[in-house]
């Protein structure tokens, strides 16, 4: 038995060594995209209003709008690969997609695995709860059930900041998280501005209580893909100057950032 376990550990170590060797290979995704005449973009279509489907069940939303602008300016066709949120980074690192535009919040932890372009939107993560509830700070959440969508920066931030005694409950997607709030399964949820606006359109029984943190979102690029990374940063600057990013923010998110952080 021990020998078997040892074998497994060795095999895992060998795979890890091999994988870093493969990843170190220099590729030029930008040239590849132009040559094949198509860009493959990973977007989660179950994260409204970033990625969703319209009345004709075609991809729509803020991330889809940005992807369309990028494909237009690259002069290539756009292929959208629908992905669940846990697959966003693996899809990129294992070459299944060229870039990821999937409400991808920028964190130091993720930046170890992938490169981020400059931000395309800065969201505010906030606590939403029934209008009647007296919740004004993280202290008020102690002993309460707080819902959040798993594998999102909403999850990371509340896990990090919540005071001991807060009962965090994680759901599969935003629809489930919102439904948990509507049906009283949780006392509050952590969500972005756009999701909060969407809830307020449906009902006034729930309201924004307080902001937890600002969350900038960027486009994910494979580590080492510097040409593509630079092209995208140039593109983001141009789209900002032409007002097209602002228009997409207005259309899908209902708010427009005053400026976007550049780094």
């Amino acid at each position: 038995m021990m020998r078997f376990v040892k074998g497994l550990v060795l095999a895992a170590a060998a795979t890890a060594a091999l994988s870093s060797a493969t990843l170190a290979q220099a590729t030029n995704t930008l040239d590849e995209i132009v040559q094949r005449g198509k860009i493959v973009v990973g977007i989660s279509l179950s994260t409204p209003p970033y990625g969703m489907t319209d009345a004709n069940l075609q991809p729509a939303g803020f991330d889809v709008a940005i992807a369309n602008l990028i494909a237009r300016d690259l002069g290539v066709e756009l292929e959208i690969l629908d992905q669940v949120s846990q697959a966003r980074i693996p899809n990129l690192t294992s070459n299944k997609v060229d870039i990821v535009i999937s409400s991808l919040g920028i964190t130091a932890e993720r930046a170890k695995a992938i490169m981020y372009t400059n931000a395309i939107y800065v969201d505010e993560q906030m606590i939403i709860a029934p209008t009647s509830a007296a919740i004004a700070s993280l202290e008020d959440l102690v002993g309460k059930r707080v819902g959040v969508t798993r594998s999102t920066t909403n999850d990371t931030i509340i896990t990090d900041k919540a005071i001991e005694g807060t009962n965090i409950q994680r759901f599969e997607d935003d629809a489930a998280t919102n439904q948990a709030l509507f049906s009283g399964q949780v006392d509050a949820i952590v969500s972005g501005v756009a999701a909060a606006n969407a809830i307020n359109k449906e009902t006034d029984q729930f309201q924004r209580k307080f902001a937890v943190r600002q969350s900038p979102m960027g486009i994910g690029v494979r580590r080492g893909d510097f040409d593509l990374h630079q092209w995208l940063n140039t593109e983001i600057m141009l789209l900002w100057n032409s007002g097209e990013i602002q228009a997409a923010q207005q259309e899908w998110l209902g708010i427009v950032n005053e400026e976007l952080p550049r780094f």
Binding site: N91, D173, Q179, A198
Partner: peptide, 24 residues
Amino acid sequence: ASVVGIVELTRTAQIVSNATFKPL
């Protein structure tokens, strides 16, 4: 299978549920 990008029954349900907010 949705984890590898196949839009099968459960994934379509997720997408529709997120477009309509009618999970039940």
